[in-house]
Every structure is written in C-alpha cells, then in structure tokens.
Write a protein that binds this DNA or RNA. Structure first.
Length: 234
DNA sequence: AACTGATGCAACCGCCTGCTG
DNA sequence: ACAGCAGGCGGTTGCATCAGT
C-alpha cells in the first residue's frame, strides 16, 4: 500500500510513516502549531523533510478528517464540482469538509473517472451498460460503500447521514502505514481498533510530556542540537 | 494452492504562487 | 524589479491487497 521506508542521500527519511513518527508530528503540531514546516521536523525530532511532514499532517493526521467510504451526496458533489472546475482538487476539497484534496483525487481516479466517461450521471441506465463489467463494478462499489457506511454509523457515535453536517472532533486513525498488527483486520475492524488505540494513546498522551521508550535515544533526539528548542520545553 | 492482473491509496516529485527583504 | 524561501497543488508512483482464473 505504501512505499517502504528508506533514507535518501541526505539522510532524510522517505516512505511510510511509523506510528512513532506520527505521534511525534501530532504532538508537536498540537503543541506548537506549524508556523514553519521546513523547520518543524528538526524541532520535532523527525528525520523527514518539511514537505513530507506537511503532507502527512494535512492528509492523515489533521483533526476532523473524515475517513472511510464516500456517501452518495459526497460523490455527487465531487462529480458536480469536477464538472465545473476540472482537476481543482483543493477547490473541491473545500466543499467537502473532512476530505483532503489528495483523497478526493484518489477517489476520482479510482472510482469516478471511468464511470463518467461519456456517461455523466447514470452509468447503469441502459441495458447494454448494465451488462458491462464497469457497471457491475460500479454497483459493487456502491453496495460496498453503503454497507460500510451503515457499519460506520453503527460503530461510532458519529452520525454521518447525507444531511448531517460533518461532525467535529474526529481524530485520525493510525491504521495505514504501520500495518504489521492491524493488517489482518478488516477495514471496519481496523477503524474501530484504531480509535480505541487512539484513546489509549491519548489517555495521557496529550497531557503528559511525550516520553516514548526511546525518547532519549539520540538517534531520534539529537539533544545537543535542539536542546533549546520548543520540543524540550514540554 | 498458485499465479496474475486490477485496484486503492499513501507518499513523492516538480512546478507554481505568494510573501518578504 | 529581483531573488530566495516556504507553502500549496496536481500528477505520478510504488506497493499491499483483492479478485479472478
């Protein structure tokens, strides 16, 4: 699903983010904000470039992100706005609170693009089309989306009806990049587990100074370099 | 069971824009 | 007006997983 972690020639880490890195980034941004993305990784004790940190935050760690399947309403909004603005994903994302431009872009390319080619709204309207693989796929994905949606509603206290405004307070899950233990779970299970994980993590995560098992490891915290930086004022 | 092609999505890259000195 | 820097955006890639054979 994601690139394997590696270090480039400048010693900058690339590829999938670890849970540890996510925690560091979240903790730092929550505490200090992000006045300067380029300096942030240095202060946060991350071996990443600022751009990578920003992307991770914007697309995955930011509060109030809405994850999971798209509702029919959201799908329609995407179609309409794409028709109107083209590939202006950030513009489209502005109209879908909780969704990121990257996510919408991915969704467009993987779900919507193929069904709209020459068949704007109802790809399954005519009989021939109904028999096509694409149509079957479309139906399948829609069914999947709906069942997953009801799952979501049942499992969280958050109401996501098509008329509901997007609920504040959604926290990100930690399910994507560190899949070693969660990879055996279904997506629904995954999301639930990650919320629980988040609860555990946050029980004293946000109130206590961030001290992990290797928090004093110099590999991660070059104390001599950043001893006076905000990170250590926690 | 093994293989293969398709799919989904996190992450990277390069370019553009806006701000500041 | 210009250069340098930082943030933002859209296109693309890499790879795990899924689905079909």
């Amino acid at each position: 699903m994601v690139r394997a972690p590696y270090f480039d020639k400048n010693g900058i880490k690339k590829g999938a983010w670890s849970e540890e890195e996510d925690k560091r980034l979240m903790a730092y941004v929550e505490r200090h904000g992000h006045p300067n993305w380029r300096q942030l990784p240095k202060f946060a004790g991350l071996q990443r470039c600022g751009k990578s940190c920003r992307l991770r935050w914007m697309n995955y760690l930011r509060p109030n992100l809405k994850r999971g399947n798209y509702t029919q309403k959201e799908e329609q909004i995407i179609k309409d706005l794409h028709k109107k603005h083209g590939n202006k994903w950030s513009l489209i994302a502005e109209n879908l609170p909780g969704r990121t431009d990257n996510e919408i872009k991915n969704y467009w390319h993987s779900h919507l693009k193929k069904f709209l080619k020459g068949n704007e709204n109802t790809p399954c309207d005519d009989d021939d089309e109904l028999k096509s693989t694409e149509c079957k796929e479309f139906e399948r994905s829609m069914n999947k989306a709906h069942s997953a949606d009801s799952h979501h509603i049942l499992e969280s206290s958050v109401s996501i009806s098509s008329e509901t405004s997007y609920t504040e307070g959604n926290s990100p899950s930690f399910s994507s990049s560190h899949t070693t233990e969660s990879s055996t779970l279904s997506k629904e299970e995954d999301s639930v587990v990650s919320w629980q994980t988040m609860d555990v993590l946050s029980s004293n995560f946000w109130t206590e100074p961030f001290i992990s098992e290797n928090a004093l490891n110099q590999d991660y915290f070059p104390i001599s370099s950043y001893g006076t930086e905000p990170f250590f004022l926690w």
